[in-house]
Every structure is written in structure tokens, then in C-alpha cells.
């Protein structure tokens, strides 16, 4: 899957997207570096979520979405004729704005994706436990939940639920993690904890994270993309974008003039 010669995890060319007749994305050309954290910022309604949801084609759940242009994930055109949706979803994990653990136990949530892709049969109990433990350790949740793996996931706090939602992506070894405002439902402490954890994952995964929080974008990302009204305005290393923005709109937005 992850071939070393590929520098960009996600590339889009002339990506346009319509919700029936409403165009939400205009000619989006982006190259997102492999193994880095890239943040996606912009005012409400500018198409951040829409863009994110087209990378794993989850947008297609809505029957009225139409897309043109190309999206390449790790060198594979995801709209290509030979590409299976399942493979894309395996390579590209998604974290949603509101934590959405499945109505299962903590353990079953973590192992859910793995079972989908690897089947149930070949897994011994100890292998399963090992997978669960490793994933939960990676999201810094193991010590909190190791005593109650059989409890329903909904009993966890929102922060823990969101970490669990990240943990359940890891056993299938995705290359890309898409995160749509993963901290917006959390309090400041929870936000900090999840941010710290995301930072820990840097390097192992390509992470594209949507945020409304300028400070968070600055703290957690290496590159930053600013979108406005369905278009990409600026894409630059985070420090550069925040210190010396090249476009007036970017400057206005990061100084809080858009709301």
C-alpha cells in the first residue's frame, strides 16, 4: 500500500462537486504531503467537510452528489474503474465531528473495522486482545479503559469516545486519517488531550484535519490550507500562512474578520 516513492498522500485535480444543483467545490487542486499533518481552515460553509468527505467517497451516501475532476490517494485514482470502495475506506480512515462509537462494547468497537476486512475466523482471542490493546495505547486510552473493555462504548466521556473513534481506525492500518473538527464537541481539557494524541500519531499517518480553531491549526499542523466559498485560497506551511499570508482573504480570516 504505502509506497515510499510517493510524496503526496492525496492529490486532487480540478475537483468540482455539486449537491444536486448547488456547487460546493470549485476547481480544487491540492497536494497533501505524506506523513504530515495538514489542517484545513475557512469560514463556515466554505466546503471543508464536503472536501474531506469526497476523499473517502462517503459523500456518495447522498444520492444527489455529483463530482468531476480527479482525486488520487497514494497514487491510486479513487474514481478509477478498478478501485474498490472498500479498499479506499480501508486506506482512508475518518473521524467525525461528533464522536460516533457504534452501539457495541469498547473492545468490539476497536476490532470492528479489522473484522470487516480480515474476517472473524482467523483471529484468536489473544491476537484480538493484542490488536485492541495496541490501538488503544496509540490513542492514549488504554490505561483508562483496560478494566472495562466489555462495557458499552457510549458510557465513555465524549473525549474518550472520540479517542476510541480514532483507535478503531488503526487496526486496519490506514495511510490517511481524515478528521472533521474532531474536538468541536469537547471541552478545553478534552480538546488538549485529543490534540496531544493526534500529534503523537504524526509521521505514521497522513492526517488532514478540519478545524475552526486557529490556535489548534497552528499548534497541531505542519501545513495549512485556507478555503473560501468552495475554493482553495492558500496552501502553505502553517507558520508561513499564519505569519506572512499571501492573500488578503487569508489575512482577514486568521485575524478573525470573517467569523
Amino acid at each position: 500500500m504505502a509506497r515510499p516513492e510517493i510524496t503526496y498522500a492525496i492529490e486532487t485535480q480540478a475537483l468540482n462537486l455539486w449537491y444536486s444543483t448547488f456547487q460546493a467545490l470549485f476547481d480544487v487542486d491540492l497536494q497533501i504531503k505524506r506523513g504530515q499533518i495538514t489542517s484545513l481552515i475557512g469560514p463556515s460553509g466554505c466546503g471543508k467537510t464536503t472536501f474531506l468527505r469526497s476523499i473517502n467517497r462517503i459523500n456518495e451516501r447522498l444520492g444527489y452528489v455529483r463530482t468531476t475532476g480527479s482525486i488520487t490517494v497514494l497514487g491510486n485514482d479513487i474514481y478509477g474503474p478498478n478501485v474498490e470502495l472498500i479498499q479506499i475506506r480501508k486506506q482512508v480512515g475518518m473521524v467525525f465531528q461528533r464522536p460516533n462509537p457504534l452501539p457495541l462494547s469498547i473492545r468490539d468497537n476497536v476490532i470492528f473495522g479489522y473484522r470487516l476486512h480480515e474476517g472473524r475466523g482467523r483471529l484468536t482471542r489473544s491476537q484480538r486482545d493484542e490488536i485492541v490493546e495496541r490501538a488503544l495505547r496509540q490513542v492514549l486510552l488504554w490505561d483508562v479503559v483496560k478494566e472495562k473493555l466489555g462495557r458499552p462504548a457510549i458510557e465513555l466521556s465524549l473525549e474518550e469516545q472520540q479517542k476510541l473513534c480514532i483507535a478503531r481506525l488503526l487496526p486496519v492500518k490506514p495511510a490517511v486519517l481524515l478528521m472533521d473538527e474532531p474536538c468541536s464537541a469537547l471541552d478545553p481539557t478534552g480538546t488538549e488531550a485529543v490534540e496531544e494524541m493526534i500529534w503523537e500519531l504524526r509521521g505514521q499517518y497522513t492526517i488532514l484535519i478540519v478545524t475552526h480553531n486557529m490556535a489548534q491549526a497552528r499548534r497541531t499542523s505542519e501545513e495549512c490550507i485556507f478555503m473560501l466559498l468552495g475554493r482553495v485560497v492558500e496552501h502553505a506551511p502553517t507558520e508561513e500562512l499564519f505569519v506572512t499570508p499571501r492573500h488578503q482573504e487569508t489575512a482577514d480570516y486568521i485575524e478573525g474578520r470573517y467569523g
Binding site: 462517503i58 472498500i86 467525525f96 461528533r98 462509537p101 457504534l102 470492528f112 473495522g113 470487516l116 481506525l169
Partner: peptide, 21 residues
């Protein structure tokens, strides 16, 4: 619907979503 979406995003097929979630 969030359950279905979560499972689909993890790579579940239509039938897996139905039977497992």
C-alpha cells in the same frame, strides 16, 4: 444514521452494515 455512516466509513459493505450494526 451516524451508526451506518461510521460503519461505512470503516469499509463495511451495505450488508455488513445491516447485519453487524
Amino acid at each position: 444514521d451516524g451508526y451506518r455512516e461510521a460503519a461505512e466509513a470503516l469499509g463495511a459493505t451495505r450488508w455488513q452494515v445491516i447485519f453487524k450494526v
